[in-house]
């Protein structure tokens, strides 16, 4: 909104690049989160009894459902920081939104693959054009478009503004796609709640969700760190090229 403001902030960085030294993400967070996933999966597999209709197939729930939750959470982060970027024009908000988008797209792809692997034995089909499946696929495609837009735009300011707009509007589309395909046809069961889930499954699902949340936090932080480093390097290179002896 204020072009003077953004000029100031970038020239500040040009003056002193070390002031914006990006923080280092501890590798221990990676070990802890990966370890948490191993523990949670082992616990869930060992404690859950065979399900009435599905038998042991129910165990795919422990990876499929948390992956879907993390997808939505990541894209919510994209939406929030995209809107804040358009509002306040802080460069770091753009980088964080982009990091969350890449992580979210990864989890989104994983959710889709796991859903197909589960759907084949449970429903008899790899894919149906049903509410959950279609909207999850559309979500994936929207954020693939987002990442492609970033890849094909060179100017950093333009990249930030455009991807923030695409991220915010894309996220806005998600509930509508979900509603529309829900009316269209439905096969995927409604979301389970503790009331419809045997307590012996609930605990395992919660543990797995927490473990995958840790993984997601590590992924986004690490990706953000990389984005900050790359941007800081670019700024220094620009300053050097402009004759900042």
């Amino acid at each position: 909104m204020k072009p003077e403001g953004q000029l100031n902030s970038s020239s500040d960085r040009l003056r002193d690049p070390s002031a914006a030294r990006p923080p280092r993400t501890s590798i221990w967070l990676a070990f802890v989160s990966i370890g948490a996933v191993i523990v949670a999966q082992t616990y869930a597999i060992l404690t859950s009894p065979a399900e009435g209709d599905m038998g042991h197939l129910q165990k795919i729930m422990y990876v499929h459902v948390p992956a879907a939750w993390m997808t939505f959470l990541s894209f919510f982060v994209v939406f929030a920081f995209s809107v804040r970027y358009l509002w306040q024009r802080r460069e770091n908000d753009d980088l964080l939104a982009a990091s969350a988008a890449e992580v979210g797209a990864t989890f989104n792809g994983l959710t889709l693959m796991l859903g197909m692997i589960w759907g084949r034995p449970a429903w008899g089909v790899w894919w149906v054009w049903d509410a959950r499946l279609t909207s999850t696929l559309v979500l994936f495609l929207i954020f693939v478009g987002y990442l492609a837009l970033r890849a094909f735009t060179d100017d950093t300011q333009q990249k930030a503004r455009w991807s923030a707009a695409v991220g915010a509007i894309g996220a806005l589309n998600v509930p509508i796609v979900y509603m529309s395909v829900k009316w269209w046809r439905t096969l995927h069961q409604p979301p389970s709640s503790p009331a419809t889930l045997d307590p012996r499954y609930t605990m395992g699902l919660r543990l797995n969700a927490i473990a995958l949340l840790l993984v997601m936090i590590y992924f986004i932080r690490k990706r953000y760190e990389i984005a900050r480093l790359e941007r800081a390097t670019e700024h220094m290179a620009e300053a050097a090229a402009m004759g900042g002896k």
Partner: peptide, 16 residues
Amino acid sequence: LMVKHSNEYRPPKPGE
């Protein structure tokens, strides 16, 4: 033809 699974997950009770 599609099988509609419910959102209920529980092991079968004896005799059910």
